[in-house]
């Protein structure tokens, strides 16, 4: 049973993080004109590694009720970094709109790619379950 869902686990964690990053970039774009706003960015590779620690086979030891079992629970968010910025603005806003829009497009494509990966694995699983005379 776990074999079936293991591939999906990784992709679904990636999808959740992509959605999270999408929201972060949307926040940066929304605050492009807010004085003093500091643009933030997510280290996606690091966040995904953190979220899929259990999926990679190296399970965290859970010896206490308060221990996290890897992955992000509801309300938990990956660590956010200050985004790089190329020019200082007089109102201390550090949103680089060009870079944010590029990141937004990049993240949209990768979100959709992850969706397709999930669809693909679901389809292959369904195909494997079909009998030979089912077409």
């Amino acid at each position: 049973m776990q074999r079936l869902t293991q591939a999906l686990d990784f992709q679904s964690q990636a999808l959740v993080l992509r959605a999270e990053r999408q929201r972060l970039i949307a926040s940066n774009i929304a605050n492009a004109d807010t004085p003093g706003y500091q643009a933030r960015e997510m280290d996606f590779a690091n966040a995904l590694r953190q979220a899929t620690r259990t999926a990679s086979g190296r399970e965290l030891a859970v010896t206490h009720a308060g221990h996290a079992a890897g992955g992000f629970g509801p309300g938990e968010v990956p660590e956010l970094l200050q985004a790089r910025h190329s020019q200082d603005a007089i109102d201390r806003n550090t949103v680089d709109l060009d870079r944010e829009r590029a990141s937004f497009a990049d993240n949209s494509v990768k979100y959709e790619a992850t969706l397709r990966f999930i669809n693909g694995s679901v389809r292959s699983m369904l195909d494997a379950m079909k009998s030979a005379n089912q077409g």
Binding site: Q22, A26, A30, A32, L97, F104, E112, L115, V122
Partner: peptide, 26 residues
């Protein structure tokens, strides 16, 4: 102001498209 408004509308459109595709998952 109008450019920033357009930026935000575009963000919402993209998010809507992605959510609709997520709805068709599977």
């Amino acid at each position: 102001a109008s450019r920033s408004y357009q930026n935000n509308v575009e963000v919402m459109n993209t998010a809507k498209g992605l959510l609709l595709k997520t709805l068709q998952l599977g």
